[in-house]
């Protein structure tokens, strides 16, 4: 009999304690970010999709060694280059990233010993079309320059 009433009592008390906690939380400020209206800056090491790095002339630093292509576990990178007439180094003519397959692992960036690719800070990526995620990085580089 005593146990019966103590259980009722302690049970009720535990409920009131719980309600006290939510009551306190009620008056605390909100902690969320209303996303499309406010945005956060991405941290310095944030890993978005990869992007070509430009040198002083606004061209890509890539020497078309193909190491990134080989390092990628998901075969997302397709690149091509050619030697311009009279030039010594190969020049990048095509750098395609298939972002549908990319796992953002960073192998490509690490494998490049010329610092030609880096992570972008882009995260607003949403589309209903698959084609929107085949990035032509060279074109993006040019667009950035203009």
């Amino acid at each position: 009999m005593v146990a019966y009433f103590t259980e009722i009592f302690t049970g009720l008390m535990s409920l009131f304690i719980g309600m006290g906690i939510t009551f306190k939380e009620f008056f605390k400020p909100t902690v969320t970010v209303s996303y499309p209206y406010e945005t956060l800056t991405m941290s310095a090491r944030y890993r978005g999709h990869i992007e070509l790095v430009e040198n002083e002339e606004g061209n890509s630093q890539c020497v078309v060694c193909g190491l990134c292509e080989k390092a990628c576990p998901s075969d997302c990178i397709t690149l091509a280059g050619e030697k311009p007439e009279g030039g010594k180094k190969k020049v990048l003519t095509k750098y395609m990233l298939d972002f549908t397959k990319c796992s953002l692992c960073g192998s490509c960036v690490e494998s490049c010993s010329f610092g030609a690719i880096t992570f972008s800070k882009e995260y607003n990526l949403a589309s209903t079309k698959k084609e929107d995620f085949y990035f032509d990085l060279l074109k993006r580089l040019e667009e950035r320059n203009t």
């Binding site: 941290s43 310095a44 090491r45 944030y46 796992s103 953002l104 960073g106 992570f119």
Partner: peptide
């Protein structure tokens, strides 16, 4: 947030 600042990703770290 802490992990993102160090590793660069929030869930599927590499």
């Amino acid at each position: 947030d802490m992990l993102e600042a160090v590793t660069g990703s929030r869930l599927t770290y590499c």
